[in-house]
Design a protein around this nucleic acid. Structure first.
Length: 230
DNA sequence: GCGACAG
DNA sequence: ATCTTGTCGC
């Protein structure tokens, strides 16, 4: 029972009322999860990797197969990825203390991006880390790691453009659920000791792609999974 | 009205 | 997201 664009926007407005922006959120999370989805046509693999918040070692992984039941529509990305991500998160042995999402949170046309959506549905603290500009205006942050500038939309500060490596293109950080912007950026910097992107998104990205490749090679796919609605 | 537009 | 070769740099 696929949603239309109008219905999806109505759902966002409804879930938006459950969003908790009071923060502050965990500053020293013991377990931090990264989530990502890889695609092969309408087939997909959703992955969750949980890292030790101190050592950044991967302590748990879950990958699930699925199908994209909603096309990519800017502003409605969550409807494409959230279903599978919920399934993957649900299979963890224990919930993480923080979830780092690929994409935006509050920095969204209707202030309810993927990170907010996943946060409200799981009740977990979430932050969004985008790799490219989506909405809002901003100045270029200084070249040093840790420098940042406001990401503004309609006069509101909805996120930060944060430099995670000296002289390297910055990332776009916005809060999702139950975390404030300072805490979100603090965590993103802790998760980027060496590369531009947080270790959480790097490990989740690799896991989702690895899963797709295995499926492609094995040909088993999800025949033993949920069959289509017949 | 015409583009731009997270992943 | 994904399609794709070589190339620059640590």
């Amino acid at each position: 029972m696929p949603l239309t664009v109008m219905e999806a926007e109505a759902v966002q407005a409804e879930l938006r009322q459950l969003l908790d922006l009071t923060g502050p959120g965990p500053r020293r999370p013991a377990r931090v999860a990264g989530v990502d989805v890889a695609y092969d046509g309408d087939r997909l693999a959703a992955a969750v990797t949980v890292l030790d918040g101190t050592t950044l070692e991967v302590v748990e992984e879950v990958a699930v197969d699925g199908r994209a039941s909603f096309g990519y529509v800017p502003g409605l990305l969550a409807f494409r990825e959230v279903p599978s991500l919920l399934e993957a998160l649900g299979r963890l042995s224990a919930p993480p203390d923080l979830v780092v999402c690929d994409g935006y949170g509050l920095a969204h046309p209707r202030r309810f991006g993927l990170a907010c959506h996943l946060g409200v549905l799981t009740g977990l603290p979430t932050v969004g880390v985008g790799k490219t500009a989506f909405v809002g205006v901003h100045a270029e942050p200084a070249a040093e790691r840790g420098s940042w500038t406001d990401l503004t939309l309609d006069g509101d500060v909805v996120g930060r453009v944060l430099r995670t490596r000296d002289g390297v293109k910055p990332v776009f950080v916005s809060v999702g659920h139950r975390v404030d912007l300072d805490t979100a950026c603090h965590n993103v910097l802790n998760l980027t000791p060496r590369y531009r992107l947080p270790e959480t998104t790097r490990t989740a990205d690799r896991l989702s792609r690895r899963r797709l490749a295995e499926n492609r090679r094995t040909g088993l796919v999800e025949s033993a999974q949920h069959d289509e609605t017949r």
